[in-house]
Structures are given as C-alpha cells and as structure tokens.
C-alpha cells in the first residue's frame, strides 16, 4: 500500500517502504501545456529534499523539477526521453520520472497529502 504526497512546486511522491517514486502533478502538466523534453538524473545520484532532480520543457516554458524527498536515484523512466508527451497523458501514473531510495521518512511531514494538495490548488 503506497501513500502519495505532494510539494508546493507540484511534484508528487508515492512511498512504499523505502521506494519513493516521483513525478509531476496532473495540474502541473496541464499548466505547462504540451511537454517536449524531459531531462532525468543519472542512476546512483544522491539528491537532497527540494533540490533540483530533473528538468522539463514545454512549448511554453522550461522548469526544474525538485526532489520531494532526499535519497539515491535507483531507477528513471527513460521512456520519457523519447516520448515526453506521455507526461501530458498520465502525469500521476505512467509518466513517473524517478524512483528514489527514501533516506528519511521524517521528511514526508514537510509534504502535503492528496486532500491537502487539492485544497492548496483551490487557493492558487
């Protein structure tokens, strides 16, 4: 059973044991418009919470994607490199971007639950 959490910068992370799978929210994908490029980190890289994890470009803008939690990159969804439009189709499911090995479950307290994130979107 995995739990999903969101950041204010519109990343999500699904945590299951020490596996933390990350991506960007449906809202973020919609706001970006047609996504044309995704840059993923190298497997093995260590990232800290809220530091740059990946980069994304759309027809409108380029943005950084920040790590929702600290950890080591164990897997990336390299399919997105050739088919970045998948992020528009399924941002919160098929178009996951990076799997991290969760370093500190305590960091999750700094994130929002699904309910909290939906409230946050309404406030924007």
């Amino acid at each position: 059973m995995s739990e999903i959490y969101f950041t204010k910068e519109h990343e999500w992370v699904k945590v299951s044991g020490t596996s933390a799978v990350c991506g960007i929210s449906d809202h973020a994908a919609h706001e970006l418009g047609d996504i044309t490029f995704v840059e993923l980190p190298a497997v093995g890289k260590q990232v800290k919470q809220f530091e740059v994890l990946a980069a994304i470009e759309s027809v409108k803008a380029a943005s950084d994607i920040y790590a929702p939690v600290s950890g080591k990159v164990v897997k990336v969804n390299s399919e997105l490199e050739d088919a970045p439009e998948k992020v528009n189709e399924s941002a919160e499911e098929a178009a996951w971007m990076v799997e991290l090995e969760l370093a500190d479950a305590g960091e999750l307290a700094a994130l929002m639950t699904k309910v909290q994130y939906d409230e946050y979107l309404k406030s924007l």
Binding site: T36, E57, P84
Partner: peptide
C-alpha cells in the same frame, strides 16, 4: 538543436 531542448 541536437536534442529536444527548446532555444528561446
């Protein structure tokens, strides 16, 4: 550009 990146 030699990649999918967008110059702006």
């Amino acid at each position: 550009v030699t990649s999918r990146r967008t110059p702006r």
